[in-house]
């Protein structure tokens, strides 16, 4: 189990809407190793987002077991889950989800706001150098609405990286971007992965999926295909 960062065992998710229940995930088994760049591909309604929510600890499975770095996180309470999300996970969303009234720098520092020890001057320097590395050195005090889509997503990437996460989770990260910006973001992902960061990305776009090292295809709540790139 040593370098397996994520292990899912027979994960099921059932949504109850009134009297009707939908089984979105019908028994998912998955192992992700340290340093992988896994792409989960599927059409809309296939359950890929629900799966990412569960991996990202934003949602709980109805049944099944989930180990993150050897810990069975499916048994943790909400406070412990918040701690894990803050220390081990980084999120990239399709809609960026930047705080509209905060500057790029403040957005990057946001996750550190929820650490009891706060943050140091070094953290702030690190945030600036992350933004610089992502080509936003000139724009650290810009508000999200003053930035292009590609720039906003790069701020979001910096925000995900500030906590030095073990696992980067991306949900259609290029869904709202033009092709040039998409390519840029994918190059950053590849670069980060090459430095050893484990990435799980969800997409419906086969072109984007090609950036990953391993692609698993999900359909109707179950993995149907797997290929190495």
């Amino acid at each position: 189990m040593g370098d397996k960062i994520v292990i899912l065992e027979d994960i099921q998710k059932i949504y109850q809407i009134g009297k009707v229940s939908y089984q979105v995930l019908k028994g998912i088994d998955l192992e992700v190793e340290q340093g992988e760049f896994l792409v989960i591909m599927g059409t809309s309604g296939s359950g890929k987002t629900t799966l990412l929510n569960i991996i990202g600890l934003l949602d709980k499975p109805t049944s099944g077991r989930y180990f993150l770095e050897g810990e069975e996180v499916s048994k943790f309470d909400s406070k412990k889950l918040a701690y894990i999300r803050n220390r081990k996970l980084g999120f990239i969303f399709q809609a960026f989800h930047l705080v509209p009234w905060a500057t790029a720098l403040e957005n990057v520092l946001l996750p550190l706001l929820y650490r009891p020890e706060g943050f140091s001057k070094d953290d702030e320097k690190r945030a600036i150098s992350l933004l610089e590395r992502l080509g936003l050195g000139e724009r650290i005090h810009a508000k999200p609405k003053e930035l292009s889509g590609g720039q906003q997503q790069r701020v979001a990437i910096a925000r995900a990286l500030i906590t030095n996460p073990k696992l980067l989770l991306a949900d259609e990260p290029t869904g709202n971007l033009d092709s040039a910006s998409s390519k840029e973001v994918m190059n950053i992902f590849k670069e980060l992965n090459a430095e050893g960061l484990t990435i799980i990305m969800v997409t419906h776009d086969p072109e984007i999926a090609k950036n990953g090292k391993r692609i698993k295809v999900i359909a109707d709540g179950i993995f149907v295909d797997e290929k190495q790139v």
Binding site: L58, R85, H97, L110, Y114
Partner: peptide
């Protein structure tokens, strides 16, 4: 978003 980034209740 705050919750996702690790804010506790």
């Amino acid at each position: 978003l705050r919750l996702a980034l690790g804010a506790t209740p």
